[in-house]
Structures are given as structure tokens and as C-alpha cells.
Nucleic acid binder design. Sequence first.
DNA 1: CATAATTGTGAAAGTATCGTGACAGTTTAT
DNA 2: ATAAACTGTCACGATACTTTCACAATTATG
Lengths: 224, 224
Amino acid sequence: MPRILIVDDEDKIREVVREYAEFSGFSVVEAIDGMDAIDKVKAQDFDVIVMDIMMPRLDGFSACKEIKKIKNVPVIMLSARGEEYDKLFGFELGIDDYVVKPFSPKELIARIRVAIKRGSSSMASADVFAYEGLEINFTAREVLIDGNKVSLTPKEYDLLFYLVKNINIALSREKLLEEVWGYDFYGDDRTVDTHIKMLRNSLGEYRNLIVTLRGMGYKFEKVR
Amino acid sequence: MPRILIVDDEDKIREVVREYAEFSGFSVVEAIDGMDAIDKVKAQDFDVIVMDIMMPRLDGFSACKEIKKIKNVPVIMLSARGEEYDKLFGFELGIDDYVVKPFSPKELIARIRVAIKRGSSSMASADVFAYEGLEINFTAREVLIDGNKVSLTPKEYDLLFYLVKNINIALSREKLLEEVWGYDFYGDDRTVDTHIKMLRNSLGEYRNLIVTLRGMGYKFEKVR
DNA sequence: CATAATTGTGAAAGTATCGTGACAGTTTAT
DNA sequence: ATAAACTGTCACGATACTTTCACAATTATG
């Protein structure tokens, strides 16, 4: 039986969702705000979290951010009508879906089903590059070396992703600056070098997948 | 920036997809039904089309059929819950993927990315010159002899690339200096000779593809 | 064949590029 | 507000590369 966590400070909302969800065959746990939700997530596993944005103590976005650090659970946000900007902001946080209040419980349940299905199928379309013990997950923005998560800085991610997306293609510093830093970056060419250096250090034993093309730039190369 | 065409008669659906897609770095064009979509496809190029099945005037399947006659664009179909059409029928029409409503925008974007990647997987293959055991890959800035990588210096690459790009064309030292070294090089003519020497050494058994034109210059010659 | 013109080549001097650590300015987290 | 993390720049040293030059080898010419 799929387990869902419903997070909202309004009793009435929780009650309605619980009713429909249980009728639809889900097991429901409630949390009253973001802090409460984080505690529950630490203690138990859920298949999906349905969370309001506006809540006392800790809002939905912040809670979502924290939760994603703990476990990768699909999160569906409940947003009040007219919170357009928030949609974009939330998507960045890894929010899977939005349901605008007032919502039809039937619709919410349908979306919960979609989220669960997607979550359990372990994301069939996960965009991943793998080579020996090196795994680069573009979707999750995650790099694993021998199963251990490597934490990269934002620029390191961006640079690595661009290099890997253009595997076996020679890339000049200018090209890299334009594509990774942006066309409006008017800094030193050698900035690339420094970040390549740090990226190589982060890649440890796989550092040599990034080859220097003297007089030209760099390239990510998959050896055979 | 990849361009996507979203075809749906419901404003709300188009709006949501547009928002997420634009945030994800896509350029979005909307069409209100199948006929509209066909007009747009005739006028512009898209990387992927997201289309509803149930629409007034011209439905998604018929529109897809027509569109495929015009251009080969990946098509993702949106089907309402319960509209369990025969998937085989759809794939026969060249439909690349199905997303069932209500969908999570995040999932749709992921599928759009996959479709684009698939579509462009037949991307311009690496720019390569090959002759017997000699392979010159311009894209990767790589030269292989019998499958083994040959490491060249920057000038050797540049010189070789220019020679090969102008295969069977006689090139004077002046021309080579101007094109490979740059118009602002004010050095000795004979510098070319030295680099030709080193390049020939690097090319090993294929050294004689570079032919000396006495009193003139050099040329890269494909025998036979 | 002798000579001049031209090209091949090795070595040495000169130059450029890259990797790196340090640091200051900035952003982000706490 | 303070600490921590990140970014961009710089300068230094090691290394790789380029250029020049002198001489050897080759080719053309009378």
C-alpha cells in the first residue's frame, strides 16, 4: 500500500485529502507544517509527499529543499491561485508537480498516482553517463564515484555536464566560456583552466578523462 | 535553444507547458488545434511537437499523420486518462511517446528532452577524413594510425588540418604561413619546412601523403 | 659533371602554454 | 552577523612547442 504524507496547516485540507486518499487505497500520514514534515520524513519512508506552500514555521519550498537532501521523494505542491512566480522557483527545487487550490480531490489523487508510478519506475528516462566507476546523472545533478556521491561546486557541475554532453569533441576555451559561463562573460580565458583543475581534482582517478588539447582547449574523452 | 510546438485546445494546458518549457530553456510556440499545428509546421522548424489527441477541427492522430508527411519531427502525444488508444497504432504513425493526463510537467519536460536527444542522435557525424589506416578526426582534434592515437603538437594539427582540408591542392609556403600561422607572422619561410618534417615523422608510414612541390610548396595528396 | 638552387634535418635558443597555489572579492549558508 | 564556500585573477615554474640556423641531401640546369 503506497504511503503518502500530506503537509498542510489547515485541518480541513488534510482531512479531505486523507479521506480521498484512503478511499483510493493509500496509507496517509499527516504533518502540520514544514518542520513537522521533515521530522516525519526522517523517521519514515513515503512514496509521495503532498505539501502546501504557505505554512507557519517552515514554508513548503524550504521544507522541500530540506527533504530532498534527506530522501528523493516525489513532492507535489499545493499552491494558491495566482502564485505564478512560485511555480518556476519550485520547479528548480525538484518539485514534481503542482496542484492549484482549490483543487478537485479526484485530480489530486490522479496526480499522486502519476508521481508514484514515476518514482517507482526509478525514472526510466534518467539521463546518465557512466564509465567504469564514474556515474554522472544529469537529471539528478549528481556525480558518483564508485557509488559515493561527489559534491561539486555549481561551476564544476556546469562545466562537467557541458564537457560530457560534448564527449569526444574538442572545445576551445572561448567555446566553454560562451556555453558554460555565458556569452556575457568578459573575463580571463584562463578561468577555464582553474575550474578544469578543480574539476579534475574532484574526479580523482577519473581526472584524465578530461584531456588538455594544447593550444586549443579541452575535451572529455571516453577511452575504449 | 530547442524549439517546441505545443498543440492543445485547452489554454491552461498550453500555459503550464509553456511555463515549464521556457524555464527549462526551450523556445515555445503554441497551436490551438491540428490544423493550426500543420500551418505552424509548414512555416517553422521544431525540435519536438507536444500534441493533444482530442481537439476540435483536426485531431492529434490525423495532424500527426499530416505533419510526418511534411517534416520528420518527434511527436509526443498527450492523452486524457481513459483514452487508452492502441499504442502500436500510434507508433505506426510515428508517434515517439505518450504522456497521460494529468501529467507532471517535470515528467513531460524529461520526455521532451529524451525525444530531442533521440531526434538529434543522427546528428552531424564527426568530421573525419580516412585513408587506409589513417584517420583524421577534425571534431575530436585527433589523429589515429591503425587505431592508435598519434599525438601532434598544435602547429602540426593546424598544418595537417589545413593540408587535408585542401587535399590535392598545391599550397605555397606563403599561403600556408598566412592560413596556418596567420597573416601577422613575419618569420622565415623555411619554418614551414621544419613543421612539415615533424608532421611527416608523426605520420609514420603515411608521411608520403604530404608531397613536396619543388619550387612551390606542399600538398596533401590522396593517391589512387 | 659541376654548380646552383632547393629541400631535409638535427640541435639549440627562444617562446608560449598549462598546471598550480595563493589570494581577494563575492556569494551563500548558518 | 559571521562563517564558510565559491569564483575569478594572477604570478610562477615546469614543460612543451616553435623558430631559427647551419649543414647535409637532393634535385635541376647548363
